[in-house]
Amino acid sequence: MSVSEDFSREAEPGRGAPRFIPPRQHFFEILGSVSNSQAAVLAVLGVVGWLGAWELVHFFTPEAHQKFVPGPGQVISEIFHLIVEKNFVPDVGKSLYRVYLSFAVACLVAVPLGLFMGAFVKVKALINPTVGGWRYLPAASFVPLLLVYFGPTDLAKLTLLFLGCVFFLIALILDDVLSVPKELIESAQTMGASRGHIICRVIFPAAAPRILDSMRNMIAVSWTYLVIAEIVAATDGIGAVMMRASRFFHVETIMAGILVIGILGVMTDIIFRQASRILFPYTFMRR
């Protein structure tokens, strides 16, 4: 082979060498890859498969019991029926208001507490043993107490939702604050930063992305407490609608309620993820 021959091939990719065909990826390939379009197809397949399985269960349920096992179509159309005919939107609004307000208050308590406990070891020694114990008290067990104190009011429900997540939130945020690298704080100290500066301008921004993540995880727990809060002596809210439906064996309404809570939960999750992208763009950058 002459040198000039090599030169003539310089322009073509691979310089004349045949393209290498890698082995086909197994579906269960360890450390495999998935393209965006593949992922989308698989996601749709997952949803369709789940709805299909549900439909099959409904289909093979004996005629006499089919009322108790509505199919996905019935449940979804029930959601629209609820919205159009049963004035469901204010109930959803009420539930959203309860979850978000109680969670906002929990964050207002948990973020400063977690921050102070993480920053000052003596504050942690003072508060953590008490808070740690509270986490093991089931929030549902406070329902009778809250009914005695506040009666069937909104305040009782908000307090239950608050109690359900605030102690976990404190523990998670404390962990987030403690996971701030020591060197980050020390380098601020060697710049002559005051304690106030270090807490507000170093520890807090350093922990903030993780804190938002903890909030995203804990608000899911808040949604799970919603039905407990609204089942007891509630006249409005998604949980109350489901509770009324259960008295009349309206299974499709109960399932519609469950589905709506699920959808709202997923939407909340998306909102938190988007907030993270907007607030902390630097955590999504890559080199």
């Binding site: 690298p181 020390e186 710049m191 002559g192 630097y282």
Partner: peptide, 19 residues
């Protein structure tokens, strides 16, 4: 009696503030 700006320090770990 404590850290101060007259003694600047570079650590082995990366200490840039990511935000």
């Amino acid at each position: 009696r404590g850290p101060g700006p007259e003694r600047g320090m570079v650590f082995q770990a990366y200490t840039s503030f990511p935000w």
